[in-house]
């Protein structure tokens, strides 16, 4: 977990270094998943509540992040302070991305900076970073696919060593909860415009000011043959449209796997019936 040596850390170019600690941190290799936390957010002590117990040398680490560290700080301590600063930034980052300041991440999502789902039938759905725990130094970062709703390990070991707590367990789910228009389709090619649909979303604006036409379209895509009632996205039956792989030997399904898949689909149908019942007539 980011236990890098100082020599490693100083690979960022000097010009970046002189800029600010955050931009240097973001530009250094392996930190592509992170987005920039606004300085105002960091400077608001309320947002940092409780972090002083998690991070040693909290004050100095915070000073380092905000470029306020005294120049006469002991050089030999800089190495360990750098680790603490990374930890602090990571923990602030986990809090920042679940605020409404989604804009930075949005761009990363659209560009698939976090990679694409390795599952073939997800057809390259862009992924989102997620932690399995909010406690640092426990689990590395994973990637969540909104299409198959599963989590995958990052391809590159460089990203496989990032602490999952720097992204938190809630981020993708909160994102899709707040912006249902971002919910990926369950079938067909990945729609690049769906990601772009969030361009108009400004922090704080919320999902309610979403363009109604776009919402209508999203709904159409989500529920084919919908009953035309209500103007919200109906996701009760989306699972029925999800594609799945069927193992076959010379064209014939494999008995035990087919049995399991039938059972799984029966569970799915039951959930769909349950959800459709909730939608009401």
């Amino acid at each position: 977990m980011l236990r890098r040596t100082v020599e490693d850390a100083s690979t960022g170019s000097d010009s970046d270094y002189s800029n600010s600690w955050i931009s240097w941190f973001l530009s250094s290799k392996g930190n592509e998943y992170f987005c920039e936390v606004e300085e105002d957010y960091i400077l608001d002590r309320f947002n940092l509540t409780g972090l002083n117990t998690e991070v040693q040398n909290y004050t100095q680490a915070l000073d380092l992040i905000t470029d306020n560290l005294d120049d006469d700080f002991q050089e030999e301590l800089r190495g360990s302070l750098d680790i603490q600063a990374r930890l602090l930034y990571g923990l602030i980052h986990a809090r920042w991305i679940v605020t409404c300041a989604w804009t930075g991440q949005d761009d990363k999502y659209k560009k698939a900076d976090f990679g694409r789902c390795p599952r073939v039938l997800c057809q390259g759905q862009p992924l989102l970073p997620i932690g399995l725990t909010d406690v640092p130094y426990e689990k590395s970062v994973k990637l969540y696919c909104g299409r198959c709703e599963d989590i995958y390990s990052p391809k590159s070991s460089r990203h496989g060593s990032i602490d999952g707590a720097y992204f938190g367990t809630s981020f993708p789910h909160l994102l899709y909860l707040v912006y249902p228009s971002l919910l990926p389709l369950k079938s067909g090619p990945t729609d690049p415009t769906r990601g772009a649909g969030a361009v108009g979303l400004v922090p704080g604006a919320g999902a309610t000011v979403d363009d109604p036409r776009r919402r209508g379209r999203a709904r159409e895509e989500l529920v084919e043959g919908s009953d035309g009632l209500g103007d919200t996205i109906n996701t009760a039956a989306v699972a029925l449209r999800a594609e799945r792989y069927r193992p076959r030997i010379f064209g014939f399904q494999v008995n035990e796997v087919a049995k399991l898949q039938r059972w799984q689909e029966a569970v799915r149908d039951r959930q769909v019936a349950r959800l459709e019942a909730l939608e009401g007539p």
Partner: peptide, 27 residues
């Protein structure tokens, strides 16, 4: 995988609630 927000499971009644767990579960 069970999606959680601040430790609470996302309800299947939410628009963004889990829809795909069937694909991975076993009896």
């Amino acid at each position: 995988y069970v999606p959680r927000i601040y430790g609470f499971k996302v309800s299947e009644r939410a628009k963004s609630g889990p829809r795909m767990q069937w694909m991975r579960i076993r009896p």
